[in-house]
Design a binder for these strands. Structure first.
Length: 188
DNA sequence: TAGGCCATCTGGTCCT
DNA sequence: AGGACCAGATGGCCTA
């Protein structure tokens, strides 16, 4: 496990209340046909905000053939369940995003980025606890990787992509409101 | 305009 | 039998 320097936020916008709210809304149910409302819409990509009925009935059967009525009903119900399932999955991802270090208001981690970032963030917290346990405090050699808030804040949603290390799931550079660095371990 | 990301549909498989 | 889960296909939106 060889630490490498990464970046994320310590200036987290997640308050204790927000965390509790996330816990209380972790079970989000969306009924089939019901308009889906994202949790934390401020954190959600703008392009998804107009997903009202954008995709509704967009997909046509691959063949022009009409399915038998009973099969069609089964398919419709299965589609509703699948939609509902995916909405719940997205809700869970939103909850996860909300407890991760904050991003610029108009940016949002993709699904894969969210999972990788969460992985590294958990690793950082674990490592921090371990260090504190071992040394009684976070050692200097670790603290030196924590940038002051005034540094490394060059980012924008555009920069976010440029700074993102796809293979490891971390930020290589600073971003707005991103004010400290995460140590990442090699995942292989 | 190409590529990335996403929502949705669909059929297959597994489980209850 | 029906629901959950999964992966492939499809097409729309957005950005570089």
């Amino acid at each position: 496990m060889s630490p490498t320097l990464l970046c994320t936020s310590v200036e987290r916008s997640v308050t204790k209340d927000a965390v509790m709210a996330d816990i209380s809304t972790s079970e989000v149910s969306v009924k089939p046909g019901e308009e889906f409302t994202m949790i934390n819409t401020s954190n959600y990509r703008k392009k998804t905000t107009h997903h009202g009925d954008k995709y509704t009935n967009r997909m046509k059967p691959k063949t022009g053939l009409r399915l038998p009525r009973q099969r069609e009903n089964r398919r419709t119900k299965a589609n509703d369940r699948e939609r509902h399932r995916m909405h719940n999955l997205n809700s869970a991802l939103d909850v996860l995003r909300s407890v991760l270090p904050a991003l610029p208001d108009d940016a949002q981690l993709t699904k894969i980025e969210t999972l990788r970032f969460a992985h590294n963030y958990i690793w950082l917290l674990t490592e921090t606890l371990r260090m504190a346990d071992t040394f009684g405090q976070i050692p200097d050699h670790l603290q030196q990787h924590y940038l002051p808030a005034s540094q490394g804040c060059i980012g924008s949603p555009t920069n976010k992509k440029q700074n993102w290390d796809e293979s490891n799931g971390f930020y290589k550079g600073g971003m707005k409101r991103f004010s400290f660095c995460i140590l990442s371990h090699n995942q292989q």
